[in-house]
Simulated scan of single mutants.
Amino acid sequence: MTCQIVQIEEKEVRLTNLEKEMWPDGYTKADLIKYYVDMSPYILPYIKNRLFIMSRYPDGITGKMFYQKDAPEYTPEWVQTYPLVSERENKVVNYIVCDDLPTLVWLANQACIELHIWMAQKERLDYPDIVVFDLDPFPPATFKDTLDVAMLVKEALDRFGLQGYPKTSGSTGLHIFLPVRPEFTYAQVREGVRFLFEHIHAVYPEKTTLERSIDKRAGKVYLDYGQNTRGHTMTFHYSLRPHPGAPVSTPLTWDEVRAGDIEPEDFNIKTIFPRIKKVGDLYRPILHQEQSFAGLLTLVT
């Protein structure tokens, strides 16, 4: 077992099992850590002040994984945590808040492949500042079908003067992030997304579904508004995913969505850095763009 201690921003971070294979493609934990170090300028600004849920793959993506909300007892004292009472578990959960590079590296060393993040900042946990439109295709529906549905979401948002930002989920689907002012609760936001999705389903029923039963979604793109729920997390942009090829949840341009000639596997640990060099950080505007959901919610009964 390899083990080394590195100094990052005046903090000691212990790295272990660097040779551990995390993806069957041959990518190791060392590759995982290096990815997040190199990608940190494009990740940290978005996830700071947000609660982080660890999704750990100690034996790589072919082994068992587990989710961990509570910071483990051995968490370094310099890792920021946020205590939150969990009514379901009847205890205080100390969530990790990843605000700096040492914490991000420490999390990667815990075999946290993915970035599962709350949609609200910790100062206003009940009021999300990101609304998500989650589109999931169920075979034989294709990613191209998902891109077509995404354009309908864009058209609907355009009518309300709202600007959404599409990205691959890193799996088979597509997410559209909508930055908003944190002025409405999760329940209110969820109803707004449901309202738009119901109208989209009404105009394109042959390829979309709101069906909650998984076995009734075949051949359709599932319009999932339920992710806009307090305590739920989303895979944030530039997160690696636990699938062969080490795919990355990647921001897209609307021109790319409209053209429809891309596939999720086009964006991975090898291709993401040349892409950013070419197109830049497409999500950068959401850091400062506050939009109001009020206009849409006035139509929700």
Rank of each mutant, 00 (worst) to 15 (best):
I8M: 04
L15T: 08
F177E: 09
M65I: 13
A71E: 03
D224E: 11
F293S: 01
S213D: 14
G226R: 15
L178C: 07
V37C: 12
L297Y: 10
W78E: 06
P251N: 01
S239D: 04
S169Y: 07
K278I: 10
A120C: 13
M65E: 11
T301H: 15
A120W: 12
Y222E: 06
V180K: 04
I200A: 00
S169V: 09
L44N: 04
D266G: 03
V37H: 11
M39E: 09
T250D: 06
L152F: 06
T81A: 03
R88Y: 05
S292D: 10
L282G: 02
N17W: 12
D148K: 12
W254N: 01
E21A: 13
S86A: 01
F267P: 07
W106R: 05
Q289D: 14
T146H: 00
P264Q: 05
W78Q: 03
S249R: 01
L299N: 11
V97G: 07
D100Y: 06
E256S: 03
Q227W: 09
G245E: 05
R14W: 11
Y225M: 07
F133V: 02
V257Y: 00
R217Q: 09
Y165M: 00
S40I: 08
G63Y: 09
T185V: 09
K69M: 11
M119V: 04
H199S: 12
G231I: 08
A259H: 06
W23K: 02
F160K: 05
P41Y: 03
D158V: 11
F133M: 06
V257S: 01
G60W: 10
W106F: 10
V97E: 05
V149A: 00
G226A: 14
T209H: 03
G260I: 09
L299K: 14
T16V: 15
F138Y: 14
Y67E: 14
S86I: 01
E211F: 06
A108K: 08
T146P: 04
T229I: 09
Y204L: 14
V6G: 00
L297A: 03
Q188H: 01
E12R: 14
I117P: 11
T250R: 08
M1F: 08
D158G: 09
R181S: 14
S239Q: 04
T146A: 02
A111Y: 15
Y82H: 14
S292P: 13
A156V: 06
